[in-house]
Simulated assay, not measured.
Amino acid sequence: MRCYDYFGCNQTECPMYGKADGPQCWEIDGTLCHHHVIEEVRQELLGMEKKESCRLCGCLYYRAANPKQFD
């Protein structure tokens, strides 16, 4: 399952929309995530990878796709 399926997203202009394979949304800049806090954290903590900000912010899709990190 991909982020757009998980969230029922219909933002076709997002670079992740319709991508069945390849990198995940936390590896791509410029996505139109439903979780606005991700970009706010990245702006506050310059140099933080998007993946880490997704983890810190509790992105539901990131948590669902990486359950072992939250055991």
Results as ranks from 00 to 15, higher is better:
Met1Asp: 05
Met1Phe: 02
Met1Glu: 03
Arg2Ala: 00
Arg2Gln: 08
Arg2Trp: 04
Arg2Thr: 07
Cys3Arg: 04
Cys3Asp: 03
Tyr4Asp: 04
Tyr4Lys: 00
Tyr4Ile: 00
Asp5Ala: 01
Asp5Ile: 02
Asp5Gln: 04
Asp5Arg: 01
Tyr6Asp: 04
Tyr6His: 09
Tyr6Glu: 03
Phe7Asn: 07
Gly8Tyr: 00
Cys9Trp: 02
Asn10Glu: 07
Asn10Met: 01
Asn10Arg: 07
Asn10Asp: 09
Asn10Leu: 04
Thr12Cys: 03
Glu13Pro: 00
Glu13Met: 04
Glu13Tyr: 03
Glu13Gln: 04
Glu13Asp: 09
Glu13Ile: 00
Glu13Ser: 10
Cys14Tyr: 07
Cys14Arg: 06
Cys14Trp: 05
Pro15Phe: 02
Pro15Arg: 03
Pro15His: 03
Pro15Met: 07
Met16His: 03
Met16Gln: 10
Met16Tyr: 02
Tyr17Glu: 08
Tyr17Leu: 07
Tyr17Thr: 01
Tyr17Trp: 15
Gly18Lys: 08
Gly18Arg: 07
Lys19Gly: 11
Ala20Asp: 14
Ala20Val: 13
Ala20Cys: 10
Asp21Gly: 14
Gly22Arg: 08
Gly22Gln: 09
Gln24Cys: 10
Gln24Tyr: 13
Cys25Arg: 07
Cys25Trp: 01
Trp26Phe: 15
Glu27Asp: 15
Ile28Phe: 09
Ile28His: 12
Asp29His: 14
Asp29Lys: 13
Asp29Cys: 11
Asp29Ser: 15
Asp29Arg: 11
Gly30Ser: 12
Gly30Tyr: 12
Gly30Val: 15
Thr31Glu: 05
Leu32Gly: 01
Leu32Val: 03
His35Glu: 11
His36Leu: 12
His36Lys: 15
His36Tyr: 08
His36Cys: 02
His36Glu: 14
Val37Gly: 08
Val37Thr: 12
Ile38Ala: 06
Ile38Tyr: 05
Glu39Gly: 13
Glu39Gln: 14
Glu39Cys: 11
Glu39Asp: 14
Glu40Pro: 03
Glu40Asn: 12
Val41His: 06
Val41Trp: 05
Val41Cys: 03
Arg42Cys: 10
Arg42Leu: 06
Arg42Ile: 12
Arg42Asp: 04
Gln43Trp: 12
Glu44Tyr: 04
Glu44Pro: 01
Leu46Cys: 10
Gly47Ala: 04
Gly47Val: 10
Met48Arg: 03
Met48Phe: 11
Met48Asn: 10
Met48Asp: 06
Glu49Leu: 07
Glu49His: 07
Glu49Val: 02
Lys50Cys: 05
Lys50Asn: 06
Lys51Ala: 09
Ser53Asp: 06
Ser53Gly: 00
Ser53Pro: 02
Cys54Glu: 01
Arg55Tyr: 09
Arg55Asn: 05
Leu56Lys: 09
Cys57Thr: 15
Gly58Ser: 08
Gly58Tyr: 06
Gly58Asp: 10
Gly58Ala: 11
Gly58Arg: 07
Cys59Asp: 07
Leu60Arg: 13
Leu60Pro: 11
Tyr61Trp: 11
Tyr62Arg: 03
Tyr62Ala: 06
Tyr62Trp: 14
Arg63Ala: 14
Arg63Val: 13
Arg63Gln: 14
Arg63Ile: 14
Ala64Asp: 05
Ala64Asn: 06
Ala65Tyr: 02
Ala65Leu: 02
Ala65Glu: 11
Asn66Glu: 08
Pro67Gly: 09
Pro67Cys: 10
Lys68Asp: 15
Lys68Arg: 14
Lys68Val: 12
Lys68Ile: 11
Gln69Arg: 09
Phe70Ser: 05
Phe70Thr: 04
Phe70Gln: 02
Asp71Gln: 13
Asp71Leu: 08
